[in-house]
Amino acid sequence: MPVSLANSEVIYEALKACDVRIISALPETWLVHLIRMADDDPEVTLIRVAKEEEAIGISAGAHLAGISSALLMQNHGFLAAINPIVSLALLYKIPLLMLISYRGHMGERDPWQTQGGMVTEPLLRTLGIPVWHLSNPDDAQRRIKDAQTLAHASLSPVAVLLTRELMWEE
């Protein structure tokens, strides 16, 4: 599978450096290595959700309980979670560190991914959610940490878009 194991490791190390203790995820191809790493890590609780909406509630609960969490989701999962992002995270000023695999964008061959790819960034911007693109593994540590710092300072969701250049080895 040409999902980058090396870059998944870099991303996972960055999450560890952020003291993330709870990771919620819904399996998706680009995230397989990250999910496996979370599953194998005794310091991290991986919660596999049935739908991404749940993950917003789980992270909100973790935040109120004083624990740092991260969400792994595909961009279509972000689309599925928009109501709770608005009516829980934004309404109640809950920080969320969302790592979103950016399917359906430049280089996408699967036609079914493309519509979601085209609306992801416009929707994030409409919601006022700050966005980092992550394409270069050298940026991962700094950008993921900075995203978490902004989330906690602003009490807002932030999105780190995991791009094809980072996640997929052609």
Binding site: I47, G57, I58, A60, A62, L88
Partner: peptide
């Protein structure tokens, strides 16, 4: 006591997050 005044359906997910965290 926390009253989730919106986001219908997610009180149990919040409870799960808190229970795992504490």
């Amino acid at each position: 006591f926390f009253y989730l005044e919106h986001a219908m359906g997610l009180a149990s997910s919040m409870g799960l997050g808190i229970a795992v965290a504490m």
